[in-house]
Amino acid sequence: MTKADIVERIFEKFGFSKKDIAEVVDLTFETIKESLENSENVKISGFGNFTSRHKRARKGRNPQTGEEIRISERTVMTFKASQILKKAINS
């Protein structure tokens, strides 16, 4: 499923124009991205939480060559599915 499929499905259920639906779908993902970019976590009740986490620099190793490498500090994003989503998937 892509963004276009999401628009199509909402269009089948409701009387909004495809253009309006597509605008809201685009803005929804863009607004979530902006929020995460500004280190603000996003909680979508019934779906899950998107959080950004700061990782300190650490030493790693290339498992193939055994060579030691430095892994720089970084901010990564994680998603934790809500209980409701987990239950829905297993139903």
Binding site: K33, L36, F50, F79
Partner: peptide
Amino acid sequence: MPFFKVGKELKERVDKKS
């Protein structure tokens, strides 16, 4: 179990400001 893999653009945007 549901899994999410962050896309390239979002990954870069989140990391850029740190």
